[in-house]
Design a protein around this nucleic acid. Structure first.
Lengths: 187, 187
DNA sequence: ATGATTACTTACCTATCGTTAAGTCAGATA
DNA sequence: TATCTGACTTAACGATAGGTAAGTAATCAT
């Protein structure tokens, strides 16, 4: 049986599935091994530790989000709708991994996920409202981006195009700030 | 040292703190006991199991959210702003516990939290848009309520009144649905 | 045919965790 | 003074999980 094998990929597939189903912490190496009809130490041939297996699944998502942000920041001027749509597509594509990351933030603390998520939200807000947004602007950004994230998780079965429309529309609506007072009727 | 002791409350305080800091799953009974300078089995005098300790912290929040929903549903007609403000206040008051519940959904699966959260979102949506909302309406509700939740977590240090204003304004903005086409100028 | 390499298996170790049984001891009760 | 109860401690158990050491069968290069 030796020589090139796709076992490493198959381990990751099974891990992704079990992690999504029952959580990272509640999934043991034994369970992953059983599902593949191999032994636990076989996993150690492909991954040096449990943590490395977890990281191999989560890290690509982190890298992709990071790359997305860097690309948008390099653009200089951002068009809100395009930014939100890009953000949506990224989250829709990786919704399985993202939900497991978000619903186990503390478990994955070793990866520094908590700080990363907070940092990303800050950077996203600055893309929309400049380097020093007001509290109101920051809140709107959190609602908009968080809302898109929630939509990809909550409505995971809705087709991408349809969901993108309603999610991005909703996020844009959340961003529109009405002038503070003065009804300004029939302006 | 016998006779009335406040140890049970002190255990819960320490547990709340450690759970919030490093997660429920990553906090062992040993750690809680050490922090209180008592022994691990002493915890079992006050709580019949680890799960019961966790539940004693999480369950009141669940009950409160349930009660909030029941009360709102009983009202018949709901005013969106009032609903959102009530929702905000509940989440602001319990933000520490709520963040630990949300960031460990899978770990707390025994409590049926995942299904509960999904159910709550559905009921909140129906409060705003009736028993059978469109996808667009459902998405807006998810963005609005999720956004309020995110705000209480993200801006945990902002005073309650100030944050409530911006969070609820943002949520309301997310709820306003523009007519699909036809600019309908000067209607 | 031989040696090296790949891809594992068998067997085992150890640490930790939740949990329990049994004992201790200060103070309230009688 | 004797007894009972509340509030623990000491000691230990069983399960499980991550991890390792050593061996083995199949394949490739030489």
């Amino acid at each position: 049986m030796p020589r090139p094998s796709d076992t490493k990929q198959r381990i990751q597939e099974v891990a992704r599935e079990l992690f999504a189903q029952q959580g990272v912490q509640r999934t043991s190496l034994q369970e992953i091994a059983d599902r593949l009809a191999i032994t636990k130490p076989a996993l150690y041939y492909h991954f040096s530790s449990r943590e490395e297996l977890v990281r191999s699944i989560v890290q690509p998502i982190i890298d992709e989000e990071e790359a997305f942000l860097v690309a948008q920041e390099a653009l200089g001027e951002v068009e809100p709708r395009a930014l939100l749509e890009g953000y949506f597509d990224f989250h829709y594509r990786n919704r399985r991994e993202i939900v497991l990351m978000l619903s186990e933030l503390t478990t994955l603390a070793d990866l520094g996920l908590i700080d990363l998520v907070l940092e990303w939200r800050g950077r996203l807000g600055k893309l929309l409202h400049g380097p020093e947004p007001t509290l109101e602007q920051a809140a709107r950004a959190v609602i908009a981006f968080g809302g898109i994230q929630d939509c990809t998780i909550q409505f995971a079965t809705v087709p991408q195009d349809e969901l993108r429309r309603v999610a991005v529309d909703g996020a844009l609506a959340a961003l529109t700030i009405k002038p503070p007072r003065k009804p300004a009727r029939k302006a």
